[in-house]
Amino acid sequence: MSHPEEQGGSLAGQSRHPAFSRLLGDLRRNPLTLAGALIVAALALVAVVGPVVLTTDPTAQDLPNRLQPPSAAHPLGTDQLGRDVLTRLVYGARLSLGIALAVTAIRVVVGTTVGVVAGYAGGWVDEALMRLVDVQLAFPGLVLALVVAGILGPSLRNVMLALAVVGWATYARVVRATVLSVSEREYVDAARLFGTPPRRIARRHLLPAVLNPVLVLATLNLGTVVLATAGLSFIGLGAQPPTPEWGTMLAGGRDYLRSAWWLVNAPGLAIVLTVLGFNLLGDGLRDALDPHQQSRLEEV
């Protein structure tokens, strides 16, 4: 008889491989998932390479050339202070994606930790942590983020904190449910019988099991964080001038809806594409990585 950890390891390995194959197959079969992946890849490329390639300063003002429509010199025109909109959009992509990744990472770490501890420890620890999750989920996320950002004061760092503080509970709940289900499995029982330390069980058996749902949730979450960051910046709680952030750009262009359409449309389209890209990709990931969910939907 092989060691249960090896069994668990091999089971996890077996489940990862077909899921990955299914994902690749799904990408090939489904143009929408592929589109989502391409959009996200393109945005990531722009965010990483764009600021290196572009030589224009996103904050450099040129008042005599303000509100210029798109042209060869300024493909997306210039804004109210004569700054190049394309350059600001590219730098904004780095900010928006960077914040989305950071916020989601914090949510994942906190939520997963809470979920694993609650699910595995059980008893009063589970009760206490889940009530905390209930309290957190009882508030509308964006409203709570608004309050937190309002109290902390307007800045991008505070927006990140606010969004991180309010978004981890969903992860905790999903992870706890998965952990409760997995911890009943025989290979986990066997590991316990063999005297494997709880920390090792969590690392080798529980965390791999929660990886897929967390990955799907995180991908879908990235889009909502981009949207929430832009929303908070739009109302003045996020990026401060002259930071080229999409929500701030949208707010600044509002008064020029009729006279300079590119000011709101450029960042607006960037936000729409980003959210759409993450949603399509997240949905494709879920179909590939969560066959139970897929089969349930197919029975409808």
């Binding site: 929408l32 949603n279 897929q294 939907l297």
Partner: peptide
């Protein structure tokens, strides 16, 4: 049997 995935709904909504 009709398959209503979130992706399809998103595509439709777009």
């Amino acid at each position: 049997h009709t398959t209503f995935t979130r992706r399809r709904v998103l595509g439709g909504m777009t």
